[in-house]
Design a binder for these strands. Structure first.
Length: 197
DNA sequence: CGGCCGATCCACT
DNA sequence: GTGGATCGGCCGA
């Protein structure tokens, strides 16, 4: 199957939890600093808008940081966490519905040498791009890229025909959101079983 | 304007 | 297993 860039209709779907599941196996690509890098998405988390205590947009909160989440689906929401890490999210749903999917891990495929250099690693083994902060650094994604369209030529997603079987998907609660009360228990995290990355 | 804290990672014990 | 790094956003004064 020929690679095809994910288009608007994918990002406008109403069910962000379903989108998070469907993003497994899709390719995330960047062309930053003139270098093509990318990999297969292996772990995601859904953030379900104004009613989700774990979401930055909980209660409909708008701020300079969260405003981009209210944008129509198909843009990047990248923010700085712990003063060090840029976390990459995909904004979904229609304008004013602030849904997003956090990409937590990828299996590197393209531009591995450059990604190694960016992360100061010597080889692409376990622990290379298995966290949201790490994969952003490897791909060259910075919080200055927040609001960027995913239909452009810097950051985008492709369907390359990777088929994911239901039995290979692990579903768990989300990570690092203990402050979210009962919403911390929601099964909104999806990962591919047996992936080393 | 000051203080607190985070959707994390790494070095060190 | 634990704590420090490090800084923008947010809230209260």
């Amino acid at each position: 199957m020929k690679p095809k860039k994910l288009k608007e209709s994918f990002y406008l779907q109403d069910d962000v939890v379903l989108i998070a599941r469907e993003l497994l196996g899709k390719h995330l690509l960047t062309n930053i600093d003139g270098v093509l890098c990318g990999g297969i998405i292996t772990e995601t988390e859904a953030y379900a808008g104004t009613s989700d205590r774990a979401s930055h947009a909980y209660g409909g909160k708008r701020s300079k940081r969260t405003e981009v989440m209210f944008h129509e689906g198909g843009v990047a929401y990248v923010y700085l966490c712990y003063g060090i890490h840029s976390l990459f999210n995909i904004v979904t749903n229609v304008e004013n519905v602030p849904h997003a999917v956090l990409i937590r891990a990828i299996h590197p495929m393209t531009g591995i040498d450059v990604m190694l250099k960016r992360t100061k690693k010597s080889k692409a083994g376990p622990g290379f791009t298995d966290g949201p902060g790490k994969l952003s650094r490897a791909l060259g994604i910075h919080h200055k890229h927040t609001g960027m369209s995913l239909f452009g030529n810097k950051i985008w997603l492709e369907d390359r025909g990777v088929k994911i079987d239901e039995k290979d998907i692990l579903v768990t609660p989300r990570i690092g959101i203990d402050y979210a009360g009962k919403d911390a228990l929601l099964p909104y995290r999806f990962l591919l079983k047996g992936n080393n990355f």
